[in-house]
Design a protein around this nucleic acid. Structure first.
Lengths: 186, 186
DNA sequence: CGCCCCATGTAAGACGTTACATGATTGA
DNA sequence: TCAATCATGTAACGTCTTACATGGGGCG
């Protein structure tokens, strides 16, 4: 019955790579461009508490002399299993439309937490979802575009282009993993 | 003292184009790909109530015989002013990093609610923010990329590519408005 | 008559934002 | 010693999610 928020998974993934304190995790969020995740203490510390209550991470307070008190968290076996389950979850269109950030986060962690095969699986599913979704978007652009203002139409077009770009990235990423698309043997 | 959520602005903008009932607005959200905005009644009806309490929209209950009861909302002068203020708000880097969806929404409504000059201003600011942000991202990719897994690095790269793609779109959109970039006269 | 769609809402709970609060330690 | 930074939290508030509830109207 464990429900975990996006931020929770982000924390799990980062802690999987390396144990860290809440403060260090905050710094990661504020420094690097892991956009759309908050670096505010009011979000991170409660999230860590929830994860610990669910037994997904365990914190150990370090307070040697001449050191600031800080609590270092590491992922438990249960937490690692939960993270893997989340990453390996089958990808559907809803994920692509609403939760692209989550998808990219899952992919980012996939290799470390599950293995390169999981990364490839995610990419392949993403590719196929995008290839089936893009025609729908072209349709919408043609159908609804006529009635919209120029800026409205352009905004829609920007969304479509974003997906096109993502599809291109997906195919390039698959190439990185040594998978070439069927039919381009030439 | 009026705070308006993203959803609130989305509703304002849609109602600006045409008065509608809550149900019609929900359909717009669920049908078209205005992603990242909820079509659930638990989000939209309370949001409409808030907007009405703030005097930004006004609803009129239509219940002729042989008709289902429904409430049609239209934007007040105050609401239109608030929408214009939001759209014309100066664009900074934080908007680009955290609130790209909002930026695109503002642009989508800009022409109808303010005028084409506002659209161009938004595009120009967006272009300049992206041009200053991208080098930072390249830096991050080089610096942090070495220590990351392949999938992690690829995920970061996907973000960078998204911004590149957006910059390209921005320049094309400016061309649509008849603005060509300085120096490409050739 | 029963079912589905229209159309509107409410209630509980989870989560993030913002702001504030607290102390310890380093460095000027 | 005084400020800045490290490091951790808490409280109030607003909003979204999920689920439920309600009723009229069209249709077979």
């Amino acid at each position: 019955m464990s429900k975990i928020s996006s931020l929770g998974y982000a924390l799990l993934g980062l802690l999987m790579a390396q144990p860290a304190s809440g403060y260090e995790l905050r710094k990661i969020f504020s420094a690097t461009a892991i956009k759309s995740y908050s670096d505010s203490p009011g979000a991170i510390y409660p999230a860590l508490q929830r994860l610990q209550q669910q037994g997904l991470i365990r914190g150990k307070i370090e307070s040697g002399s001449g050191m600031r008190r800080r609590q270092v968290f590491r992922v438990t076996a249960l937490g690692a299993a939960e993270l893997r389950k989340w990453i390996a979850r089958p990808l559907n269109r809803a994920d692509v439309i609403r939760g692209l950030d989550d998808v990219m986060l899952r992919f980012a962690f996939s290799e470390q937490a599950v293995g390169p095969k999981a990364s490839v699986r995610l990419l392949q599913r993403l590719e196929s979802e995008l290839e089936s979704y893009l025609p729908d978007l072209y349709q919408q652009l043609q159908t609804g575009g006529a009635t919209m203002s120029t800026s409205g139409r352009l905004a829609l077009e920007s969304g479509v282009r974003g997906y096109e770009c993502l599809l291109q990235w997906t195919m390039d990423a698959l190439k990185t993993y040594g998978h070439r698309k069927k039919g381009v043997t030439s």
